[in-house]
Each structure stands twice: as structure tokens, then as C-alpha cells.
């Protein structure tokens, strides 16, 4: 007799537990304002990433096309996977000495793991995080970027 009641109690409790679960799903079915999906490609114009978002490494330039990079190469030695290459150049100073400046700051986005060591260790704060995140391209060579803009020069206060 006991097992007989147990049998029906199991059925009752089973159905009750299923209904409890369906109550949760049903509540969301009838409350469409709780939907959290972002309509991504449609909201591209209004989409704003967080300030600290790690999209890619960039070198900020001023309005006069000046950057802060001295070409010291600390970011290159700190990069764990060789995604930064620095090609240096030497120019003659007016006092006859030779001065080391940067020719090309090459950044391989395809090898970058976004660890942030280059930006953290840069002594002159020349590098920063960019907000761009749509990196898909058809040709892999496009992922190799030169960070210093053509014709740019070093900021006056840094070089002195």
C-alpha cells in the first residue's frame, strides 16, 4: 500500500517540478522587455566600447602628426611572441652627434595576444589601446601594421 501511494506521490512531484521549471520559461516568454540580445551589425553606429577595451595596439598622434615613441625597443623585448618589430634610424644632429630615432614601428596584429606588456612597460607612454575590434580581413598581410604615421616626428618634450 505504501509503495502504491509512493508511486502517485512521485508522479505528482515530478509534474510539479516540471511545472515549476515551465513557470520560469513562461515568465520570460510573456515579458519581452527582459530580452537582452544586442542586434550587433545593425547597432554598429551607436555601439560604444568601454574606454579600457583592448582592441588593438595603437600609437596616438597629435594634431601636428607627432608621436611620443623614441624607438628604445623596450616594447619589442617585452613582447612575449614577437609581434612588435622596431626599425631604427639615425639622424645627424646640428651639434654633430648622431641621434637614434624611429623609422618604422611594425605591429603584427595576427601574432598579438593582447597581454598589454608593451603598453605597461613603455617609458614614454607612446602606445595605447585602440577601440577597433573588427579585425577580419581577406589578406593576412593587412594585419601587419606600421604604427607611426608617414611623415610623423617625435614630440618635442620627449626628445629633449
Amino acid at each position: 500500500m505504501n509503495s502504491f501511494f509512493q508511486y502517485f506521490a512521485d508522479i505528482f512531484n515530478g509534474v510539479k517540478s516540471l511545472l515549476t521549471g515551465m513557470k520560469v520559461t513562461g515568465r520570460y516568454f510573456f515579458s519581452p522587455w527582459e530580452i537582452v540580445t544586442q542586434q550587433y551589425p545593425e547597432n554598429r553606429k551607436t555601439l560604444k566600447m568601454y574606454d579600457r577595451f583592448k582592441g588593438e595596439v595603437i600609437m596616438p598622434h597629435t594634431a601636428n602628426n607627432e608621436h611620443r615613441c623614441t624607438g628604445c625597443g623596450i616594447c619589442e623585448t617585452n613582447c612575449p611572441n614577437g609581434s612588435i618589430e622596431i626599425i631604427q634610424d639615425k639622424i645627424d644632429m646640428p651639434d654633430g652627434k648622431k641621434k637614434r630615432i624611429i623609422d618604422k614601428h611594425i605591429y603584427h596584429l595576427s601574432m598579438c595576444t593582447f597581454c598589454g606588456l608593451c603598453i605597461k612597460t613603455c617609458p614614454s607612454d607612446a602606445l595605447a589601446w585602440g577601440q577597433e575590434f573588427e579585425h577580419a580581413v581577406f589578406d593576412r598581410t593587412k594585419l601587419t601594421k606600421i604604427l607611426n604615421k608617414p611623415g610623423s616626428s617625435i614630440l618635442k618634450d620627449i626628445s629633449e
Binding site: 537582452v36 568601454y50 579600457r52 577595451f53 583592448k54 593582447f114 598589454g116 605597461k120 589601446w129
Partner: peptide, 30 residues
């Protein structure tokens, strides 16, 4: 859906959602 809330907090503070590299020996990145 609920994990997204934590990932948003992470993204705001540390810049990334899954692989943060936020701690450094001796402290924090920022």
C-alpha cells in the same frame, strides 16, 4: 545571459572578457 553581466564588469575594468592578464607579479596591471 547572467555570465554576460560579469563579463561586462571585467571588460569595463580590465579591457577584455575572457583572457585578462590582469595580475602582474607584485600587483595589478591597472
Amino acid at each position: 545571459r547572467d555570465r554576460e553581466k560579469i563579463l561586462d564588469i571585467f571588460e569595463e575594468s580590465f579591457g577584455s572578457r575572457l583572457l585578462h592578464s590582469y595580475y602582474t607579479p607584485g600587483g595589478l596591471m591597472m
